[in-house]
Every structure is written in structure tokens, then in C-alpha cells.
């Protein structure tokens, strides 16, 4: 059932990709033109429309990898491992962009590109976990062992996600607390919320699109390796 749904999604991938970029273009227009400048931060606050959706997408990427890793360890389904691998490979790009955009916002606002703040450090740890995951996949040659080790690492690294979320509550940090505190408790003006929602929808759709592409890439690579192995065996005989 899931395999069939996934194949359908892969067939629809070009449309999903187009939808992602159109949503991002709409979000960009709303962020740069329609949304008002912030009273305290001025124009620089427009970067929040980029930084927050990137951060949410990075967390979504790790969560997808976490769930897929559990499914792999439980069912040993190769597709689950491929989705986890793809989510991490795509997620690391979003995580790097989150750190970059946060740094660019931090310089005019905090007068520092980087500070050893709990939220920033815990997010950087997630980036390192993703990098470690991808490195592990290149070091272990046996595909079954590689998938198993990587899945375990993804599970261990998931501990960082609640730390990221709660860091602004647990410690007194420079990073501002969450603006979304459940339904009906949103500390953002409605005209600013539209741009944030459009950018978040665009980023998450782009994540889905890139994950579908990367999964297809892993499937094709596996097919190619199998084909090459067969050719080698035929040549040896």
C-alpha cells in the first residue's frame, strides 16, 4: 500500500516541484512586498520569513528520517532506509541554510554572526548529527549493516530535537522564545503570518520534492550496481 502511494508520489514529483517553487515565489513576494517592517527590527525582520520556515523544515526532515529509521529497524524494508537516507541528505541542506540565514539575521540584530546560545548550539548539533549520519553511510560497505547502523544513529540523534524545541524555555537565552504556543496563542501580527505560512508551505513542499528525487536516485543507484554486478559475473563466467 505504502509502496504504491510512494510510486504515485514519485510520478507526481515534477508537479510537486513546480508547486514548491511557485509557493516559494508567492512567499518571497509576500515577505518582501506585502508584509510590513517590524517596529523594533525594521526591514531585517523580513529574514524571519526565511529563517523560521527553514528551521521548521529541518526539524521535519529529521523527524521523517527518525520515523523511517524505526520502520526500517522493525520491518527491514529497503524503501524505509532509502527514505531515511534521502531525508537526511536533503535535510542537511535546509539545516545549513537555517544556520546561514540565522547568522545573517544575527549580525544586524545582535551584532554577532554567531553566539554560544542554547538554541543555536543545539541546532548546530543537529547539523553535525546529519553530517555524521551521511559520513557513516559512506564508511560502511555492507548495505545491510550500513542501513542498520545509520538507523540506530538517527534514533540516537533524535534526542536533540526536544532539546532544540525546549532550549529557549530551559535556559535563559539570547534567542527569542517560540511565537507559536499552541492554537490561539500566536504572537505574530496576521499580515506577517501570511508570508510566514506561504514560505513554510513552499519549503516543506520543496523538501518533499527533493526527498522523492533523492529516494529515486538511491533506487536507481542500487539498480545500476546490481546491473554492473551481473555484468561482472557474466564476464567472469
Amino acid at each position: 500500500m505504502f509502496n504504491q502511494l510512494f510510486k504515485l508520489a514519485q510520478r507526481l514529483a515534477p508537479l510537486i516541484g513546480l508547486a514548491a517553487w511557485l509557493l516559494l515565489a508567492a512567499g518571497l513576494y509576500w515577505s518582501l512586498v506585502k508584509a510590513p517592517a517590524d517596529y523594533y527590527q525594521g526591514e531585517v525582520a523580513r529574514l524571519m520569513n526565511l529563517h523560521v520556515p527553514l528551521a521548521k523544515t529541518s526539524l521535519l526532515a529529521y523527524s521523517v528520517a527518525f520515523i523511517a529509521s524505526i520502520v526500517y529497524l522493525w520491518k527491514r524494508a529497503p524503501l524505509a532506509d532509502q527514505i531515511a537516507h534521502a531525508a537526511m541528505a536533503v535535510g542537511i541542506v535546509f539545516t545549513a541554510c537555517t544556520l546561514m540565514s540565522g547568522s545573517i539575521w544575527g549580525k544586524p540584530t545582535w551584532n554577532a554572526w554567531w553566539t554560544w546560545d542554547a538554541r543555536l548550539v543545539s541546532f548546530a548539533v543537529m547539523f553535525l548529527m546529519m553530517a555524521g549520519y551521511l559520513m557513516l553511510r559512506t564508511y560502511v560497505e555492507d548495505p545491510e549493516r550500513q542501513a542498520r547502523f545509520a538507523a540506530v544513529l538517527a534514533l540516537v540523534g533524535f534526542i536533540d530535537l526536544p532539546v532544540i524545541h525546549l532550549s529557549v524555555r530551559w535556559w535563559r537565552t539570547l534567542h527569542q522564545p517560540a511565537s507559536f504556543k499552541g492554537a490561539g496563542k500566536i504572537a505574530i501580527a496576521p499580515e506577517m503570518l501570511t508570508s510566514l505560512a506561504l514560505m513554510a508551505a513552499g519549503m516543506m513542499t520543496l523538501f518533499v520534492y527533493l526527498t522523492l528525487l533523492y529516494t529515486r536516485r538511491l533506487q536507481l543507484q542500487a539498480q545500476l550496481e546490481q546491473k554492473q554486478r551481473q555484468q561482472l559475473m557474466e564476464f567472469a563466467q
Binding site: 515577505s31 525594521g42 523580513r46 526565511l50 541554510c97 540565514s101 544586524p108
Partner: peptide, 30 residues
């Protein structure tokens, strides 16, 4: 306050270029 718009342009420009390049390279590789 001082708009410091260069940071806004740099942030959006850099991130969108990275995401566009990642999409393009992945599509070409596929």
C-alpha cells in the same frame, strides 16, 4: 531605524540560490 537591507537581500539571495542549485543538480543527476 536603519533598514540594513543588504542583509535581507543577502539572506534571501543566498538561501534561494543554494536551494535552486540543489534542485538543479539533483534533477540532472537523476
Amino acid at each position: 531605524i536603519n533598514p540594513k537591507y543588504g542583509y535581507v537581500a543577502a539572506g534571501f539571495g543566498l538561501v534561494l540560490c543554494v536551494l535552486l542549485l540543489r534542485t538543479l543538480t539533483l534533477e540532472l543527476k537523476l
